[in-house]
Computed example of a mutant assay.
Amino acid sequence: MRVLVTGAAGYLGHAVIAALAERGHEPVAFVRDATKAPRQATATAVGDVEDPPSLRAALRDVDGVCHLAARARVRESLTDPLPYWRTNVNGTLNLLDALTAGENRASLVLASTAAVYGTTATQPIREDAPIAPTNPYGATKAAADLAAANVAATGQLGAISLRAFNIAGAVDGHPDRDFTRLIPKVLAVQAGLAGELGVNGDGEAVRDFVHVADMAHAFVLAVEACSPGEWRAYNVGSGHESSINDVLATAERVTGQPVRIKRNPPANEPRVLLADSRRIRQELGWQAPNSDLSQILSDAWNALTSSYATRE
């Protein structure tokens, strides 16, 4: 398949391009800057999801789309929500419009998020849990999912939404440089790129971390499985329960040094957030062989230190 990957220059985009190429597909990187396209891409298309003409041009002769382009910072979405609605919702609508404008019926896989569920008390979270986002980021991703489901119901395309929980690790030496996320921030502290890590409360909040390589493989399986006229949502998580303190202890083992932390008051956040990923395992045969916490942090640490050593 010839597969367009929007947001290909990003952290997850690099991993998805690599996974598609390894599977024998032809990944096309859709990026705003051609110099940032992943090296494994078969071709590069320059454009923006907020620019419909560039989308239509990029979709020529494409069999599938992995739609990753989005704004994805929860706290930022609370203080500046409009750009999230423009990119995450309008960008997806532009893509759906371009996909349905011609006769080509390309498969569509959307990068969705556990944030669409909000703070549900039932754990682990299943796909039939209520959609109740508590922030603009989650709300915009829920809206994008619903738009894709509505269009798929017309028979004009097949779509799958992959609801990720906490993606971490690294593929092909490409680290996650978003230090607002827990694991990148911990490792930034260890590498001397940040002063300390703020830990809310007792550090016993539990999360579900999935290796970016395993997440990327989910995109490959999904784009192969889309069926015209159908939309499906899949939760993607490792099934491993890891507390914040577990992450700190693992980071200390991997890096060989203690983590400098600052204890903050408890935050208004879920005590437990876990994925029930049985549906994607049973229906698509997905597994998470790389999602042991030690491997996630080791791969992320090696990519981060190698990346910054190369820059010096």
Rank of each mutant, 00 (worst) to 15 (best):
L110G: 14
A58T: 04
A98L: 05
P266Y: 02
L95P: 12
Q287G: 14
Q123K: 10
L146Q: 14
G173F: 07
R263S: 12
D176F: 01
A69N: 05
Y117D: 11
A101K: 05
R32I: 05
G201I: 00
T100P: 08
S306M: 13
H14G: 15
D202H: 06
P258I: 01
A115G: 05
A43K: 01
A149P: 07
Q282N: 11
L93K: 10
T79C: 03
Y308D: 03
R126Q: 13
S294R: 10
Y117F: 15
I160M: 12
A251M: 01
A9M: 11
L293G: 00
A101T: 04
A275R: 09
A300G: 15
A21Q: 06
A147N: 04
N264K: 13
A111N: 08
G169R: 04
N268T: 06
R86Q: 14
A309E: 14
N135S: 12
W286P: 09
V89N: 09
R271C: 04
W301R: 15
L157S: 00
G10K: 06
P130I: 08
I244A: 02
G198N: 03
L248T: 03
I125E: 01
Y234M: 11
K36C: 01
T92N: 10
A34T: 01
V89G: 10
W85M: 05
A144R: 11
A18Q: 13
H240A: 08
G64W: 03
W85Y: 15
G192F: 08
L78M: 14
V31M: 07
T255L: 13
L96P: 07
S77G: 05
A9H: 06
Y11G: 08
D145Y: 11
A144F: 10
E103Y: 00
H25K: 03
T6M: 02
T6W: 03
S291L: 12
P38H: 10
G285H: 02
A129M: 05
A143D: 11
G7Q: 07
T154V: 05
V186E: 03
G102A: 14
S294F: 02
V220D: 09
A132R: 15
F165C: 13
A121G: 02
A303M: 08
A132N: 11
R263W: 00
I261P: 01
L182T: 12
A115P: 06
I160C: 03
V151D: 05
T154W: 03
P289L: 10
A191H: 04
A225E: 03
V62L: 03
L273F: 14
H240D: 14
A251Q: 00
D128M: 06
G64M: 11
L55I: 15
G169T: 05
A9T: 14
L193F: 04
A98M: 02
N302K: 13
S298P: 01
A152C: 08
L297D: 07
G7S: 13
A58Y: 09
V247K: 06
P228D: 08
G138S: 06
P266Q: 10
L146W: 04
S112I: 07
H67L: 11
H14R: 14
N135R: 02
G10R: 07
V46C: 07
G47M: 03
D172M: 04
R126K: 12
A251Y: 04
L221N: 06
A153Q: 11
R281N: 06
